[in-house]
Amino acid sequence: MRARRIAVVLLLGPALGLLGLFFFVPMIASLALSLTDFDIYAVADRSALRFVGLRNYQVLLGDPLFWRALRNTLYFVVVGGPASIGVSLAAALAVHARGARLKGLFRTVFFLPVTTTIVAVAVVWRYLYHPRFGLLNYALASAGLGPVDWLGDPDWAMPSIIAMAVWKNFGFNMIIFLAGLQSIPERLYEAASLDGAGRWRQFLHVTLPALAPTTLFVTLLTVIGYFQLFAEPYVMTQGGPAGSTRSVVLLMYEEGFRWWNIGMAAAVAFVLLAVLLGVTALQATVRRLLSASAARGGGAGAAQPPPPRARKGKVTA
């Protein structure tokens, strides 16, 4: 018994110690810092540090720069998220389709951009978007359109970043959708086919409902990941033009590590955390409603297999 307790300590100790010191303590310290005026002077001399209560949050919520950053980030999440999930689902359906050849090859190809370093592909895409020599404008010109200053025009900069993000990320969600598709029992399709349902109706009444839990999981991952937008605008636009691509994390980085307004930057971090917790709570509610309606077995839910349990095993974004 004693030996087992020692084994538990030895096995869990290193990981929990590291997590505690380098993840949980900083997280709590971040909350504490957000209530102070920790700045460049306090970095050098701690006695310059003062408790200021909620003043950082007040200043932040009254700052148009912050609202701009939040709006930009929401734009990225609300437009880029669904676009990315839609492309992932379409790719998964095409690779999974009955009769598709070379499934493994296509899956690998679609996944390749996921393995790339964002800084490196941002470099590549910046040249693709080049207003004069870029291939994109060249293609547009040969169709008699453009040119568009993709990254230099405040209206186009965020959509351009979204297009790159979709390209880079869709492969990851695709493999999760593929796993979801593979777990749908063949007999559901056979039953639907016996009932006279064509391919399209099978898709609507078997595939889509069965994928609902997977979709929810993928949505949570994607939304949480997309709220942390940073490297794309940092490398491609430095937050410009005219602040149109400055994200919340980029704002935090600038406040914290460029201006050393650490108290303020910590407040930005906590507003972001509050938003993320809100999103997670919303997802949990939707999942409850979803499984409740599946349990009642009404309508489309009737064809649904029991949803795989607890899909919280994994967050990589």
Binding site: L21, F22, F23, F24, V25, P26, M27, A29, S30, L33, V43, L220, I224, Q228, F230, V249, M252, G256, F257, I262, A265, A266, A269, F270, L272, L273, L276, L277, T280, K312, V315
Partner: peptide
């Protein structure tokens, strides 16, 4: 804590 991104504690971690 799985949904909490590391960025939240990044500033204190740096100071630490």
């Amino acid at each position: 804590a799985l949904v909490v991104p590391g960025q939240i504690g990044m500033l204190p971690l740096f100071l630490l």
